[in-house]
């Protein structure tokens, strides 16, 4: 295997003072190969967004390393960090608050270019208008409108144009379609697929919506309470989930089809507090298959199929899965 574009090793983030320490992300490791889309899925509080922010060092990781094309980002600081970080860009959940309401679309997209003095005058305008046109915003008609005049979907398009201005290698998308209407959501997902192909982008797509994640991802990683449960090729993972949590998650997902059978049983209870996570496997308190061993020994990711890893002492096999979704 060639060297991955992004390599994350043992990433941990904790918040708060010692007495109330919240372990938001705990020892997360994964690779993202150049040109692929990795989906990061999980419920609120599982640490998926914090992971994305820690990669960008918007929040400081407490442990672990993040390297982009072999260069360690966690070691950089100051201007070097700012410069290197431009190879990664991020798009956020709330399209409205992602854009400064008092600036014009053109200036917002040009901001990264202005920061690094990459282009000026005629060239700057050419690049910016090109980007706007590419994301579906007519630069002539709308380029000089203020951000507050755009709808959510249009704002998200402008955010994407801004993220692309520095020609990043990696695009981190944090719940980018969850605030949008279904019809607009599809437009943005299709746009991301098109731009990915055109710019040769690598995507880290963070979302809670299982169907959206499957649709856009080559591989999918599932998180629960700050840890990775399972990671594998999208289709394989959805067809044959190996971690009990993934099974429940997929079983709870709603399919827009009245003929679809009610799948699996519903996961009872709610995630425990990250202030005081369970020992061993963090899912054991809600897992019907948990044993003594799960409380004492933290399961490590191990391969169950080609490229499909799971952090469970008793991964589900085809026979064990029984009534679970197929």
């Amino acid at each position: 295997m060639t060297e991955p574009l992004l390599s994350v090793r043992g990433l941990s983030v904790t918040f708060g003072p010692r007495s109330r320490r919240v372990s938001a992300v705990d020892g997360v490791s994964f690779d993202v190969a150049a040109g692929e889309t990795l989906g990061l899925v999980g419920e609120s509080g599982c640490g998926k967004s914090t992971t994305g922010r820690a990669l960008m060092r918007i929040v400081e990781p407490t442990a672990g390393t993040v390297s982009l094309e072999g260069a360690d980002l966690t070691a950089a600081s100051g201007r070097a960090l700012r410069e290197r970080r431009t190879a990664m860009q991020m798009i956020f959940q709330d399209p409205i608050s992602s854009l400064n309401p008092r600036r014009r679309a053109r200036d917002i997209v040009a901001e990264p270019l202005d920061c690094w003095k990459r282009a000026a005058g005629e060239e700057r305008r050419r690049i910016v208008d090109g980007l706007l046109a590419q994301v579906g915003i007519d630069p002539v008609a709308y380029g000089d409108r203020y951000a507050r005049q755009f709808s959510g979907g249009q704002c998200q398009r402008i955010s994407i144009a801004r993220a692309l201005a520095m020609r990043p290698k990696l695009l981190i998308c944090d719940e980018v379609v969850s605030a949008l209407d279904v019809s607009v959501q599809a437009q943005i997902l299709n746009l991301l697929e098109d731009l990915k192909a055109e710019y040769g982008l690598t995507l880290l797509f963070i979302a809670h919506d299982l169907a959206v994640v499957k649709n856009i991802s080559d591989r999918v990683a599932v998180m629960y309470l700050g840890r990775l449960c399972e990671i594998g090729p999208a289709d394989a993972l959805y067809d044959a989930p190996a971690h009990p949590y993934t099974t429940f998650l997929l079983g709870a997902a709603l399919e827009a089809d009245p003929e679809a059978p009610r799948r699996g049983e519903v996961l009872e209870g709610e995630p425990p507090s990250p202030l005081d996570p369970p020992s061993g496997c963090r899912f054991r308190t809600r897992c019907p298959y948990a044993t003594e061993r799960c409380a004492t020994e933290t399961p490590e990711l191990r391969e169950v199929a080609r490229g499909h890893q799971v952090a469970c002492h008793f991964p589900l096999t085809i026979t064990r899965r029984g009534g679970a979704p197929d």
Binding site: M56, I58, R82, E83, R85, T86, M88, Q89, M90, F92, Q93, D94, S97, S98, L99, N100, P101, R102, R103, E111, P112, C115, W116, S159, R162, A165, M166
Partner: peptide, 26 residues
Amino acid sequence: TQDYVVAAKVQGASDTRILVRELLPN
């Protein structure tokens, strides 16, 4: 705390630039 301030940060804007361009007008 708005995302556009975070966005400016990850685009590599310096603190001064963020204060003048993003915060001051608002």
